[in-house]
C-alpha cells in the first residue's frame, strides 16, 4: 500500500498526539498522586508556614536533619490518626537517634487548623511531631512543592459540611532538603523504621 502525502501527514500527526497525550498523562498522574518514585527526579520541597504558636517555620529550618512529612487535617478521624500513630512508633523506635528526624504534620485545612488546635492534635500522638499551617496560598505552595494533591470536597455528612481529600503517604526529606522517598499509607511502622535506620 502506498500512502499519499496527506495520509503520511495524518499518521505523523496521530503519532505526535499519542506521544503528547502519554507525556501529559504521565506528568498529570505524577502530580495527582504524588507517586512514581522510580521515575522521580531529585527535587527539594520548600515551604513557608507557621507552627502552632504562629512562629514562621520554613523548609530551611530543618537542614541537617531528616524530615518525615505528612499532609492531613485534624478533622480526619480515620486515616490521619492511623498514620500519626505510625509516626509515633517510628519516633519511639529511633531511640537516641530520634533527634536526627523531625516529623512534620502539614495541615491541608488551615481554615480549621491553626494555633492551639494544631498543637493539641499533634501532641496527642507524639511530642516530637510539629504541626504546621499557613494561609491557603502558602498551603497550596507547600503541597505543590512536595507534588502533593489535596482538595476540599463538599460533604453534607462531614463536620462543617466538608472534608478534605488528600495524599495519604509519608514523605522522607533528606538532611540537604532533597525529597528521598515516600512511604505509602498502611506501610508498617517497623518497615519505615528499618528504612530510616539504614539511612541514619
Amino acid at each position: 500500500m502506498k500512502l499519499t502525502f496527506a495520509q503520511k501527514m495524518l499518521w505523523a500527526a496521530a503519532a505526535l498526539a499519542l506521544i503528547a497525550f502519554a507525556a501529559l498523562a504521565w506528568t498529570g498522574g505524577l502530580r495527582a498522586s504524588g507517586t512514581g518514585e522510580a521515575t522521580q527526579e531529585a527535587f527539594r520541597p520548600e515551604f513557608r508556614l507557621e507552627d502552632a504558636a504562629t512562629r514562621p517555620v520554613t523548609s530551611e529550618d530543618f537542614r541537617g536533619r531528616y524530615q518525615l512529612v505528612f499532609f492531613g487535617f485534624t478533622n480526619c478521624p480515620d486515616v490521619c490518626p492511623t498514620t500519626l500513630s505510625e509516626v509515633a512508633q517510628v519516633m519511639d523506635g529511633l531511640g537516641s537517634e530520634a533527634d536526627r528526624v523531625q516529623p512534620l504534620f502539614i495541615s491541608v485545612d488551615p481554615e480549621r487548623d491553626a494555633g492551639a488546635e494544631l498543637a493539641e492534635f499533634t501532641s496527642a500522638f507524639h511530642p516530637s511531631i510539629l504541626g504546621l499551617a499557613g494561609s491557603p496560598e502558602a498551603t497550596q505552595a507547600a503541597a505543590e512543592s512536595f507534588k502533593v494533591f489535596f482538595a476540599r470536597e463538599d460533604d453534607a455528612a462531614a463536620p462543617d459540611g466538608y472534608s478534605m481529600a488528600h495524599a495519604s503517604a509519608l514523605y522522607l526529606i533528606g538532611p540537604d532538603g532533597d525529597w528521598l522517598r515516600q512511604y505509602a499509607y498502611g506501610m508498617p511502622a517497623a518497615d519505615i523504621l528499618a528504612d530510616l535506620q539504614n539511612r541514619l
Binding site: S33, T35, D78, V79, A157, A158, A165, H166, A167, Q182
Partner: peptide, 17 residues
C-alpha cells in the same frame, strides 16, 4: 454518628458517607 468509608485511590484518601 454516621457510617463513613475511607477510600484510597492512587495514594489519595477520601471519605464518603
Amino acid at each position: 454518628p454516621m457510617l463513613h468509608e475511607t477510600t484510597l485511590s492512587e495514594g489519595i484518601s477520601r471519605m464518603a458517607h
